[in-house]
Design a protein around this nucleic acid. Structure first.
Lengths: 248, 248
DNA sequence: CACATCACGATAACATCGATAGCATCAATG
DNA sequence: CATTGATGCTATCGATGTTATCGTGATGTG
């Protein structure tokens, strides 16, 4: 019996290591694909290139993932999982609205840091919801939203809140990435975030009475139509107005 | 001489029709590709399938567009142009904030009606800004924003306003399309739109009724509190504002 | 009008990629 | 030990992007 138990244990251990080996190579292939995606773009992710980078052969990919789409799905899953890991870091029950902001920022920063992966994860409408790690992340998000609701902050449906958070984050990342680098204004991200907070919660945004900047903007828009000032004067005036708007 | 003129005319007419023929087949190929894209998805857009649908041969695509990417770029351009056509419809100078809402709705509805085309046009960050028709649409949008600014409605930079409008629309379309049909809440779209309006405009115009003199007055009233400009600069600025107010 | 030029239709071909077949090897199992 | 099954490896097939090539008819020229 002890012998039987021993062999059983050995067998179990052996099959475990066999499954582990399979899982390890699977992980190696996924990481090779993710690396290739991040470094050389989506078109560089061919079955042959991934197999070569992972030190195996093309048919192995089909034995592991069934399909190239299966491989990409695994890469997406891996992306959601790594993002989820950074998300789990701090879950201290501080201000739930502040938690909402932090979670949104984290998601956006992840997208900006991994543009190709983000495009694969979110730009294809069909693949978006299918991931298990994505569902786990969704549960975390819904937990945050639930806490908002419990605190009396929530302004809309919980599901609508989740959709709003996703939509603003997606729009933020994709628009940011589509802008040329010299036109990327960080205010785009913060404004979208506060916009999202205002739409989801009851927290009134600090109504800045920044009348100066508004007056400057209005005047700037109306300046081209005036005929009083010379072009040199108008040019200098416009410069000063810019400075006023920037510092105001 | 009459003979020379006649042959010249014929030559011109002939070369014109030749160029027209080229343009017509080009258009036919683009529309075939757009049709294929809309009806059978992105993967169905192969050079052979497009050529067959357009009644020509694969090499013709390369003579017309140089590249498959060139063909897709032409499809994107075509998409922007058709959207631009629907946009030009009504440009009545009504309430500029209402114009903003209408323009945003139009853009979102276009995306929802043409999901595959929209993904091709906007989900790839690089291809987004390169289109001529897109730049034309951007000019229309900037015109709308300029009118907001002239009316004293604008709350942020004009370029930031444009980015916010694009980002919210993109997030709205892509998130809507990624949701299963039974989870699509129209409130997602209206909430995002109103969120965008709240981020871009003031509920009430800060500078009432948009006169140059009014903007000048507002600015004059707020100038003493600023610390950006030197006293000399502020003095000259104040003089110019006086002249603007007097002549406006 | 005769001739050169050039764009276009059409076919074939090449390289790459996704996907599969087939075979050898090697470990696990009864 | 024989069997089963998974894996490494090569070769291969069909599809796709892309190019070469040839013939033809239109275009432009002397």
């Amino acid at each position: 019996m002890s012998e039987g138990a021993k062999t059983d244990a050995i067998h179990v251990a052996a099959s475990e290591t066999a499954a582990d080996v399979r899982e390890v190579t699977r992980q190696r292939v996924v990481e090779a694909a993710a690396d290739l995606l991040a470094r050389e773009g989506r078109d560089a992710v061919t079955t042959r290139a991934v197999a070569a980078a992972a030190g195996t052969q093309p048919p192995a990919i089909y034995r592991l993932f069934g399909d190239k789409d299966g491989l990409l799905e695994a890469v997406v899953e891996h992306g959601h999982a790594t993002f989820l890991a950074t998300k789990h870091r701090d879950t201290r029950p501080q201000d739930p609205v502040e938690d909402l902001r932090a979670g949104w920022d984290l998601a956006v920063e992840f997208g900006l840091a991994n543009p190709e992966l983000y495009a694969l994860m979110y730009s294809d409408p069909r693949r978006a919801m299918a991931s298990a790690a994505f569902q786990a992340g969704m549960q975390i998000l819904l937990g945050r939203i639930r806490r908002l609701a419990a605190g009396g902050w929530l302004r809309v449906d919980e599901t609508l809140a989740a959709a709003l958070i996703h939509a603003t984050a997606r729009g933020a990342v994709l628009t940011w990435l589509s802008l040329p680098e010299d036109q990327r204004d960080p205010a785009l991200l913060t404004t979208l975030r506060e916009s999202m907070v205002a739409a989801v919660t009851h927290e009134r945004p600090v109504v800045q009475d920044a009348g100066l900047a508004d007056a400057v903007r209005t005047l700037q828009a109306l300046l081209p139509g005036q005929t009083t000032l010379s072009s040199a004067e108008q040019h200098l005036l416009s410069e000063w107005l810019d400075r006023l708007a920037a510092d105001g």
